[in-house]
């Protein structure tokens, strides 16, 4: 199936952006921890946290675009997304990571690690799907 596209860069990855957790607490995007996502999902009635393991990272059809294939959840359902190489994902226990951390840091001033095959990213699914 064709990859879903996350080809835009949302404003909330900019350092200093204010993020509201599910319990109402406000945090800056650069201060978020794995626990913030886990606890917010626990409160949510609609969303649950899933682990998405990076299985492949391929160069996309257009410049600066990569196609990342994830194995989602316990069943490792195959999902691929097409993203700009600086698009950050939150890796469990590690924090923000992208395929090109230098660009992410330059564009968003967001400290970032290199996203690698085998990294386990925070993702969401609908509770009703489980």
């Amino acid at each position: 199936s064709p990859p879903s596209s996350l080809a835009t860069l949302p404003p909330f990855f900019m350092r200093g952006s204010i993020i509201q957790l599910a319990d109402g607490e406000l945090k800056r995007v650069e201060d978020l921890k794995t626990e913030d996502f886990i606890q917010s999902a626990e409160i949510s009635s609609e969303l649950k946290i899933d682990s998405s393991t990076v299985e492949r990272i391929d160069t996309g059809q257009t410049p600066n675009v990569v196609v990342i294939q994830f194995g989602v959840g316990e069943l490792k359902a195959q999902v691929s997304v097409e993203v700009l190489m600086e698009y950050p994902f939150f890796v469990f226990g590690q924090g923000w990571s992208s395929c090109c951390p230098d660009r992410t840091t330059r564009l968003f001033e967001l400290s970032c690690a290199k996203l690698c095959v085998g990294d386990v990213c925070v993702s969401l699914t609908l509770r009703s799907l489980g």
């Binding site: 199936s1 996350l6 949302p10 404003p11 909330f12 990855f13 952006s17 204010i18 993020i19 509201q20 957790l21 599910a22 406000l26 995007v29 978020l32 913030d36 996502f37 917010s40 949510s44 969303l47 899933d50 998405s52 994830f70 989602v72 959840g73 069943l75 359902a77 195959q78 999902v79 997304v81 994902f89 939150f90 990213c121 925070v122 993702s123 969401l124 699914t125 609908l126 799907l129």
Partner: peptide
């Protein structure tokens, strides 16, 4: 009168990609 500048607040879930596993059956 100076109106306070509103700071955008983003919900936590907007930061996380929504990866719905494909239903195999």
């Amino acid at each position: 009168n100076v109106e306070p500048r509103s700071v955008p607040v983003f919900p936590w879930h907007s930061l996380v990609p929504f990866l719905a596993p494909t239903q195999s059956d």
